[in-house]
């Protein structure tokens, strides 16, 4: 599964790990991360992420 990087702060979303702190379970593909989810480090929206 493709990882996505926050272009504002550099945080990388890894679908295999998900992100427990923001309520995204391990194994959640980027497309299935809720649209109103924000970067756990800097708070910008999903639209600021790019595949890496």
């Amino acid at each position: 599964m493709t990882k996505y990087e926050c272009t504002a702060c550099g945080f990388i979303y890894d679908p295999e790990k998900g992100h427990e702190g923001s309520g995204v379970a391990a194994g959640t593909a980027w497309e299935d991360v809720p649209e109103d989810w924000v970067c756990p480090l800097c708070g910008v929206g999903k639209d600021m992420f790019e595949p890496v």
């Binding site: 504002a8 702060c9 924000v38 480090l41 800097c42 708070g43 910008v44």
Partner: peptide
Amino acid sequence: IEARMLHWP
């Protein structure tokens, strides 16, 4: 208006 990352979170 929150301006996250302009230029800090």
